[in-house]
């Protein structure tokens, strides 16, 4: 096996404070996958929410974050939230392209005693599992699930878009999450709503529209007969899992769709307990699909 990969993990505000299963399941799974996570304590918001409103402030926040996360000299930065992932990959892209911008950010950070030495690689969880850990390793996990389980993948908008900023997969037809699901022994397939928006960004400013988008995503996905929907992003997870019941009660009353984090699904395959991946915090009816995933 290759040398252990050292990644600085940035959990992000929302996963730190609300969707804590994201961090927990990721850290638990990484223990089994030859990845050494470093979780720096000194972090800050990536600035995603107001990137348009205060562009220089959010670039400063992102730059500061890059400096904090690279202090331990990791191989890359693993971002658990798609919003943070977009902010960091965009910042990295711009700082690489624009030397004056980089110098400017550096001078601001120097005032605070921080240093942005190099420009790190920004890693998405799907990228980590597919490109760094590799599907061969995932295939090697002893399978316990029913290989007829049909899993819907949800990448989330900011994992892939905009394509003008490099990402880990094809922005209009990605496939790495599907390869991961298949490596775990389940079935995955394309569906029209695959790259649709969960609505989370609107939660703060237009909650009813946010819920409407979530409804159209969930109900659109459910009509294809999937047994389970997986995602990695805490915001998407919030909309698709935690708010699913409220969404359904408001807009429609289709059967509920079990939703899991991809890392929860992998954890269960690795033999971790439901508690190890905080499955009790999932509010969608995961019990419906659990017997087909875990055969004990």
């Amino acid at each position: 096996m290759a040398r252990m990969v050292k990644l600085a993990v940035f959990t992000g505000c929302f996963a730190l404070s609300k969707q804590i299963a994201v961090e927990l399941s990721t850290l638990r799974v990484l223990q089994h996958l030859n990845v050494e996570p470093i979780v720096p304590r000194s972090v800050n918001c990536c600035g995603f929410a107001f990137r348009g409103l205060y562009p220089s402030m959010s670039l400063y926040l992102t730059g500061r974050l890059l400096a904090s996360l690279t202090a331990s000299d990791p191989d890359g930065i693993l971002t658990l939230c798609n919003g943070c992932y977009l902010m960091l990959r965009e910042a990295v892209h711009r700082l690489r392209e624009d030397r004056r911008l980089l110098e400017s950010v550096r001078s601001y950070l120097r005032d605070e005693g921080l240093e942005l030495r190099g420009i790190p690689r920004i890693v998405h969880p799907v990228e980590l599992l597919h490109d760094i850990v590799g599907t061969e390793v995932l295939k090697g996990i002893k399978r316990t699930g029913d290989n007829n389980v049909l899993v819907a993948t949800h990448y989330g908008c900011h994992a892939l878009r905009p394509s003008t900023v490099p990402s880990f997969d094809n922005s209009v037809n990605p496939s790495k999450m599907e390869r991961i699901v298949e490596a775990l022994g389940f079935r995955a397939r394309d569906y029209p709503e695959r790259l649709d928006c969960c609505g989370a960004v609107l939660l703060a400013t237009n909650p009813s529209l946010a819920m409407k988008l979530a409804y159209s995503k969930i109900s659109g996905t459910a009509r294809w007969g999937f047994h389970l929907l997986v995602t990695t992003c805490p915001y998407c997870f919030e909309m698709l899992d935690a708010r699913q019941e409220a969404v359904m009660q408001t807009f429609g009353d289709e059967p509920r769709l079990p939703v899991m984090l991809l890392t929860q699904l992998i954890g269960l395959q690795l033999g971790l307990s439901e508690g190890d991946v905080a499955l009790n915090l999932n509010l969608s009816p995961v019990d419906k699909v659990l017997p087909q995933i875990v055969r004990r």
């Binding site: 505000c13 609300k18 972090v43 800050n44 918001c45 107001f50 926040l61 400013t205 009790n280 509010l283």
Partner: peptide, 26 residues
């Protein structure tokens, strides 16, 4: 919208956009 201001205020106080939340289990 006010929400953006709130987030900025939060960050100024805690580095993070959100403080403690209520987490519910199934």
């Amino acid at each position: 919208p006010r929400a953006y201001q709130d987030m900025v205020e939060n960050i100024m106080g805690t580095f993070l956009a959100f403080g403690s939340q209520t987490i519910v289990s199934r």
